[in-house]
Design a protein around this nucleic acid. Structure first.
Length: 836
RNA sequence: GCGGACGUGGCGAAAUGGUAGACGCUACAGACUUAAAAUCUGUUAUCAGUAAUGGUGUGCGGGUUCGAGUCCCGCCGUCCGCACCA
């Protein structure tokens, strides 16, 4: 226990003053420049995780810094409160999801408050409350009216024993997590949002997001997956009907050796009606989960339908038609032609079913049509063995085939996206009810606005798997808003990604009667700095971008991109330990003895495992409450920011937090050293001004580890310096520089230094540019790029004088040893490189 | 399988193409102390050398350049995402 009681009491008092004065409440009417700082809101799982602490500390430092720079800052917090864990808790512990969630929120809110985050709690949101999700239903219906919502069949993971839809994470090795039954893919009619209408916009918009990490933009670009290709028909032999195929490689058409269609392609479905063998094959394909990884890694299987199609470029050339498990109905036309020589999947398939493999793109000097080996060639090259395409470049050949297809009317060039429409239906209770009523006569009818919110019923049970809304005795019964006849409510709820697709707008403006007020929201949006985990790089961020654009499209808000600057922080990791039998041990169950680890309880040997992401199952979690009790919030905050660059993983360690705690003490001791002495200290003052500038730059760039290194540097310099008024000023300044990071200590120190008011309200210290300039610089002297000497020179010395100084150096003279100097490269104020 | 990233001392790291290892942690030595803790001072990439100094060194192999941790090509390893976890 590092903190004594009185310290803890004082720190609580500090937090209370911030709260009483309401200094972190954002003023909608402020005349100041604005800054909207947001961290991804947490799922209320029960306890704040150390990863949250890292995320929110970064945002907090940035928000506090922006306040010091004179901005009106909006820094809100809320809860992504719908989701599966609440239902799991209900099943396991018999508690109601709502009660469980609200208890968790209350507890976690207290935890956050203890860490001293400068949050505007007056804008707190929990997505599970009708005050939030009712507005979400209204927005959903706006999109419905705009034609951006539709219904279609889509596959889900079906557990045939529990008779329940499973989430991907509930499918383990193709089996249901509770029942252990082999999971099947089953089709259900579900609601979708037309995100594909915005594919091009979302792709183009990435270009304007220059304050997003390149990797995230690249991932989204690949996810949207724009490609140009040919859509064309392979006609059945002797028929005008055929199979429509999409390909991005029309240049390889003369290398085609088969056509493959998806198991749920209409042609396959129709044929299977009278073909039990095909039926079995299709059923076989439907085994296992729905994820791309599972489908891609499944062994490639095909079924020869016996059908033949004619090659569009040569109708006398016939190709077999297979049903194949690796062809997806969701992408393109659900049918492809296989060119094994130049596509790995097709090659694997061709080898397995003994189909011809013809080379049509030259691989260096390999041009013969017979292709051997098991590695497809997808690189550049000239077209070979392809009649009129021979000798063309790939791009040229693509254009030639598309032109021919268009002129002969058997196909056309087409832009295709990999992005699929967003399925938002979930067969679960704990989510936003989809505000639709199904009437046998009128179809799917929106719930009228004056009947919103459609509230979740409280009286539900979780003793049986499946959706309690579906089997609720009365809830789903409703009158059709059109004809007044008996009808049934939609019992699916919305994907929780919908909840997180507009919460940042609600934070900016939350009237009671509407989702948000357009003008007020536009004052704050877009979010100036958004911070969260990379794991959200694609889905959440893309959905939120889409939702914002959709609202903009229907005129509800004039904002295209919701997050102008994005930062993705790394995970918090910790050493793991195991028993000899492989079971996990928590770090406090082991002790180091010499080079080895032993289990404290029984002295048996323990194994120090890898440093891994903190998780309950590996027992390497640290509870923020415990460490705040032990070291205080400031030391914990300092640790979250120091050493590791924020975008990388941070390893939690006992030694590390101890070091941070010691630093907070050092800083505190400094504040007792104000001497009142007179006198200048130019080098110290220069260091101080460099720190004011450097720390500001680093915080702006979210390089907290570098900012902290600069604060350490200045601390070292202050400690070494003799008393002077410059030193006293440096002490007062360093507290202000550290204030965003260690706000409690800074507040107390401010009082102790006899300064008035709250440091939280102080501006960032001013830099005197004249004080930044160094008058001497160290010049590196190299010979052929190798360092041989360094010398001190006046800053700004002309190149010829630097060169003369370097050549005069004794070390240089002995290294040259009379050889001819061929060239000298001089970088002003930096180095001289002598080439001999 | 597909897509994306990362790799520098004992450890976390720093370094507009220009002195690799700032800053922190650990460890070791010393001061203070009856003692311990705390604190303070110093050392801490590696090899050779008493030292001065010199060689080597940023995952591995090549390349561009006067000069490469940084740029290019090819490997290896680790991590993240893949549409119903959030």
């Amino acid at each position: 226990m590092k903190l004594n009681v009185s310290t803890r009491v004082r720190r609580c008092a500090v937090a209370k003053i911030w709260e009483e004065e309401g200094i972190f409440h954002a003023n909608d009417l402020s005349e100041k420049p604005r800054s909207y700082v947001l961290e991804m809101f947490p799922y209320p799982s029960g306890r704040i995780h150390i990863g949250h602490v890292r995320n929110y500390t970064m945002g907090d430092v940035f928000a506090r810094y922006k306040r010091m720079q004179g901005f009106e800052v909006l820094h809100p917090m809320g809860w992504d409160a719908f989701g599966m864990p609440a239902e799991n808790a209900a099943m396991e512990k018999g508690v109601h999801p709502g009660g469980w969630t609200r208890d968790n929120i209350a507890h976690m809110k207290q935890q956050l408050k203890r860490i001293g985050f400068a949050l505007d709690w007056s804008r707190e949101i929990a997505t599970c409350e009708p005050e939030y999700y009712g507005h979400e239903q209204a927005l959903f219906l706006k999109l419905f009216e705009a034609g951006l919502v539709f219904r279609k069949e889509s596959e889900v993971n079906w557990d045939p024993v529990d008779r329940t839809v499973l989430a991907n994470e509930q499918v383990i090795d193709g089996k249901g997590w509770r029942s252990g039954a082999e999971v099947e893919r089953r089709k259900l009619s579900q609601w979708f949002l037309k995100i594909t209408d915005f594919a091009e916009e979302l792709l183009e918009g990435l270009g304007s997001l220059d304050s997003w990490p390149d990797k995230v933009r690249l991932m989204q670009e690949n996810w949207i997956g724009k490609s140009q290709g040919l859509r064309c028909i392979f006609k059945f032999v002797g028929s005008q009907d055929g199979i429509e195929v999409f390909t991005t490689r029309p240049d390889t058409m003369f290398g085609a050796s088969f056509v493959a269609i998806a198991p749920d392609h209409p042609v396959a479905q129709q044929m299977s009606e009278n073909a039990p063998a095909l039926q079995n094959f299709i059923a076989e394909c439907k085994k296992g989960g729905t994820t791309a990884a599972e489908i891609d890694t499944a062994e490639k299987m095909g079924f020869n339908t016996g059908l033949s199609v004619a090659h569009p470029l040569d109708s006398s050339w016939h190709l077999p038609v297979y049903v194949a498990n690796f062809v997806l109905m969701d992408y393109g036309t659900g049918a492809v032609f296989g060119c094994p020589a130049h596509d790995q999947r097709d090659l694997d398939f061709a080898r397995k079913y003994d189909l011809t493999v013809t080379r049509v793109v030259a691989d260096g000097d390999k041009v013969d049509s017979d292709f051997d080996g098991d590695e497809a060639y997808s690189g550049p090259g000239r077209i070979v063995n392809s009649h009129f395409l021979n000798d063309m470049e790939i791009a040229e050949a693509k254009a030639a085939v598309i032109a021919k297809a268009e002129s002969e009317a058997w196909g056309s060039g087409q832009t295709q996206y990999r992005l699929r429409d967003w399925g938002v239906s979930r067969q679960r209770y704990w989510g936003t009810p989809i505000p639709i009523i199904h009437c046998e006569i009128c179809g799917a009818v929106p719930v009228p606005a004056d009947q919103l919110p459609v509230k979740l019923p409280e009286d539900v049970g979780f003793d049986i798997p499946g959706n309690p809304l579906d089997r609720h005795p009365t809830w789903s019964k409703a009158d059709c808003p059109h004809c007044g006849g008996a009808a049934r409510r939609e019992t699916d709820t919305l994907d929780t990604f919908v909840d997180s697709s507009w919460y940042f707008i609600r934070f900016a403006s939350q009237p009671g009667h509407a989702p948000f007020d357009k003008l007020t929201a536009e004052k704050w949006l877009p979010v100036d700095q958004y911070i969260g985990g990379v794991e959200h790089a694609i889905l959440h961020l893309l959905y939120a971008r889409f939702w914002t654009r959709a609202l903009s499209h229907i005129g509800m808000i004039d904002v295209k991109e919701p997050f102008s600057s994005l930062f993705t922080q790394g995970m918090v990791t910790h050493q793991t330990y195991k028993h000899g039998d492989g079971s996990w041990l928590s770090p406090d169950q082991v002790r180091k003895e010499g080079a080895d680890w032993t289990v404290i309880a029984d002295g048996s040997p323990a194994i120090a495992g890898r440093v891994e992401k903190m998780s309950k199952s590996k027992k390497n979690v640290v509870d923020p409450d415990d460490i705040v009790d032990q070291y205080g919030a400031d030391a914990v905050r300092w640790f979250m920011l120091s050493d590791s660059p924020p975008e990388r993983d941070l390893e939690w360690s006992e030694a590390g937090i101890e070091g941070c705690w010691r630093f907070t003490q050092r800083l505190w001791r400094l504040t007792g050293q104000v001497s009142g002495a007179d006198g200048e200290d130019k080098p110290l003052s220069r260091k101080m001004h460099q720190a004011i500038e450097g720390v500001a730059e680093d915080i702006e760039a979210l390089s907290f580890n570098k900012a902290i290194a600069k604060i350490y540097d200045l601390t070292n310099a202050i400690e070494k310096a003799p008393p002077s008024s410059a030193r006293d000023e440096a002490i007062r300044t360093i507290i202000r520089l550290a204030a965003p990071m260690v706000p409690h200590l800074a507040e107390e120190a401010w009082e102790k230094l006899g300064e008035g008011g709250l440091i939280a309200n102080m501006p960032w210290p001013d830099v005197n540019p004249a004080m930044l300039i160094e008058d001497e610089v160290t010049i590196a002297v190299q010979i052929k790029g190798k360092l041989r000497d360094t010398l001190l020179a006046a800053k700004g010395l002309p190149n010829d004088e630097l060169q003369a100084l370097a050549l005069a150096s004794a070390k240089v003279q002995s290294a040259i040893a009379g050889q001819e100097v061929r060239k000298v490269i001089v970088v002003p104020d930096r180095l001289v490189n002598i080439v001999i």
